[in-house]
Structure formats: C-alpha cells, structure tokens
Design a binder for these strands. Structure first.
Lengths: 93, 93
DNA sequence: ACTTTGACTTTCCGTCTTGGAATGTGATTG
DNA sequence: CAATCACATTCCAAGACGGAAAGTCAAAGT
C-alpha cells in the first residue's frame, strides 16, 4: 500500500502540488523542487510511465510550455499513499 | 525540514513503531518490516549514527537480545518529519 | 573447558536511484 | 537561417538497498 513511485521526496512534492492545483507548469515545478531541468524531467517520466501524470505541450502562440496534471490513476495512487502515511503516522499504540 | 534519514520507508516504519512503543526487540522490528537481519541491522545503524536511536543489549539471564528505543533527538526528528509531511499532505491550495 | 547456538553485525556484491552536467531536439524568434 | 528557448536524453559518479555469506561474541550444552 506504500507507493514507491509516489513516496520519493521530490515526487511526493510534485504529487502534493498537482493534487492541489490540478495542473502546473514545468518551470514552476522545477523551481518548487529546486532541481535541474533534467532532474524534473526524469521524475516526470517516472510518474508518466506509471500512468500518474499526463503531459501536454499546448502549441498555441508563444513558446511551447509543458503542463503537467495528475491522471485519475495518479490521484488515486496519491490519495492511497496519503491514507497509508497518515495511518502509519497516527498509530497511537 | 524533510529528514532523509527518517523518510526512507523502512526507517519511517521503525520510527513510527518506536514512537508508539518506546522500546522494541530486534526480532519484532525485523518481522514488522519483513526483511533480513542484515537489513534491519543496517537501518538501525543509520538511525544510531544519526543519534536517533539507542541500542541496548541487557546481558542479564538468557540470550542476549537487542532492544531499540528512540532518543530524545530521534523523537524530535520524527515529530518534525511528521509535521512536515502532514503540512505537505494537507496543503489545501 | 570446549564446542555449539543464538542473535546479531559486517562484508561482499549486484542492482537501482538520484542528481548534475553535457548534449540533443524541435519549435520559435530575431 | 542562425540563435534561443524549453525540455528530453545521455553520460557519469555517488549513494542507497537488499540479500547472502561470513564474522563476533556471549550463553548453552555436554
């Protein structure tokens, strides 16, 4: 019930942020984590391969920016992980 | 505020358990995690080197068993980590 | 007293993860 | 068409993890 994909510190932050904001720009996430582009890119790939996020590059006017959002599966996985975490943290025995 | 020493899945379980039980036997922790002796031993060493747990081997009657407990520092570190986690998980924005 | 156990501890080893830097790529702007 | 932006990949090196095997050392057994 402990999702390793979600539990890694940086990915947990990404998921928490996305869960709260529905969608976010690549650069915002990168600055949030304070890591290099390559690092965020790889984390997003892990999440994407797990089917937890979708990545879109709306090719409208201006530069191509990347937007990330949680998929239904991702939201479920994150929610489940949060439940598991809270259960562990609150064990009052 | 995110403590890597505490955040690793298995060590988080160890800390959560110890936080709730004040002291625990080696074998109990090993079974709780479902890992090999060597693995638990190494995790305990990490926690010990961080000053988060104390290990005692009461040499009374019977076999020598190992008991583990959180130190004040360990309890503080764990509590702080829990606070950081909850803050992250509950971010409502 | 000496060998055998029990209960870990260390070492060995292979795999996986993580991170940054360098490089590559495709679209966009000058 | 060259330069640039926004990422994606590749390249590397450092650690983290885990299990198995070997090492330790006190307590039991004989």
């Amino acid at each position: 019930m402990f999702d390793e994909v979600v539990h890694a510190p940086n990915r947990l932050r990404i998921c928490a942020f996305l869960d709260a904001s529905s969608t976010a720009e690549f650069s915002v996430l990168r600055d949030l984590l304070g890591v290099a582009d390559s690092v965020l890119s790889k984390h997003l790939k892990v999440l994407q391969d797990a089917g937890y996020v979708t990545i879109s590059k709306p090719t409208g006017r201006g530069r191509v920016k990347t937007w990330v959002s949680l998929t239904a599966d991702g939201r479920r996985a994150y929610a489940g992980h949060v439940v598991a975490l809270k259960a562990l943290l609150n064990t009052p025995e």
